[in-house]
């Protein structure tokens, strides 16, 4: 019975994935989604990957990191440099992505080991500093072309982003709903109790931080190879804040929330582009309103699950 449930939910998700892929394809060929919307879709996909990976660190494990843009820039520049070296060969994207992931893992380990002993505000400041260091380093390296940045060919389109969005979600959500994720949540809830349960809290904090960094780096690679230009200023502290806003807006600890909020905020940002003057004001006002009326974010800790839905159906049938 239980085993049945697992396969049923997995199957349901598979249908959702294939269904949305086909739907987008149909909409594009029918002309409903034009070129501009396709660009927005890329932004949405990349933002979701950034948001869920940061949510793993902040919402699930409770470690307040402000250095996410730093890992994004590692992925972006690794890909950028390798694409340049390989003259824009299609495979350079994936080689660049892999290099970015490896560098991110190493950097995340170096950053995490001392800083994750810090708590709350201190950790935020330490990771903020780390993000800025990465930016300055990139700004002063020859290979990254300094402040001018790199101009790259567009090498990927939405199906690639879609595939990586699916992979990121599966990996991060499966991690969260396992013994590892439970340990991470216990660290967030009560570190002392968690240690007393035999959990090496530092290990799990580092683990969440590294997994988060890997996917931020992947998002960076996707960004670099779909938006033509990368400059150090794109990955400044502001970018980390943008990602944080998506996570908080959607609800810390809710991946469904990150999806919804990345979608809403990206659409909002784009649709306000014609009101450039007052864009930031409207955007800021909306955020203030959300924080007043839904301080826990749009969805709080709610998570959409097919298993819950099936349980409901099952109960209804029993009643009848």
């Amino acid at each position: 019975m239980r085993k049945n449930q697992f396969t049923k939910t997995n199957l349901a998700w598979l249908l959702v994935i294939i269904g949305s892929y086909l739907l987008i394809n149909v909409l594009i060929s029918a002309g409903v989604i034009n070129k501009i919307y396709q660009t927005v879709m890329l932004t949405i996909g990349i933002n979701i990957i950034l948001a869920i990976s940061l949510n793993l660190i902040i919402g699930i494990t409770g470690q307040f990191s402000l250095g996410h843009a730093g890992f994004m820039s590692i992925g972006a520049y690794s890909a950028g440099v390798i694409v340049k070296m390989m003259d824009g060969a299609p495979s350079s994207v994936y080689i660049g992505m892999l290099v970015g992931i490896l560098i991110s893992i190493v950097v995340a380990l170096i950053v995490a080991t001392p800083t994750l002993r810090l708590k709350g505000d201190y950790l935020a400041i330490a990771t903020l500093g780390f993000g800025e260091i990465i930016r300055i380093v990139i700004q002063n390296m020859k290979i990254t072309n300094g402040a001018a940045g790199l101009v790259l060919p567009k090498l990927i389109d939405w199906p690639v982003v879609f595939v990586f969005l699916v992979i990121s979600t599966i990996v991060i959500v499966s991690f969260t709903y396992s013994a590892y994720g439970r340990a991470c949540i216990s660290v967030r809830e009560d570190e002392i109790a968690s240690e007393t349960m035999g959990i090496n809290t530092t290990k799990y904090k580092i683990m969440a931080f590294v997994v988060g960094a890997i996917f931020a780096s992947i998002a960076g690679t996707l960004y670099a190879t779909s938006f033509y230009v990368i400059k150090p200023e794109i990955f400044s502290f502001n970018k980390s804040i943008d990602i944080l806003v998506i996570v908080v807006f959607g609800g810390m600890g809710s991946f469904t929330g990150s999806f919804v909020s990345a979608l809403l905020i990206s659409v909002l940002n784009t649709s306000l582009q014609s009101f450039a003057d007052i864009r930031t004001i409207i955007y800021g006002a909306l955020l203030v309103l959300i924080m007043i009326f839904r301080p826990q974010g749009l969805l709080g800790k709610y998570e959409f699950k097919f298993s819950k839905l099936f349980d409901k159906f099952a109960k209804k049938e029993v009643r009848q």
């Binding site: 499966s174 013994a179 216990s186």
Partner: peptide
């Protein structure tokens, strides 16, 4: 000092954490 936002059952499962034998990859790829 319970894990307040976890269910009763998950609180117990956290206690059993060290006694669970599967790796990260097994968790991720199910």
């Amino acid at each position: 000092r319970l894990f307040k936002e976890l269910t009763v059952l998950d609180n117990i499962k956290v206690g059993m954490n060290q006694n669970i034998n599967y790796g990260v990859l097994t968790a991720i790829f199910r």
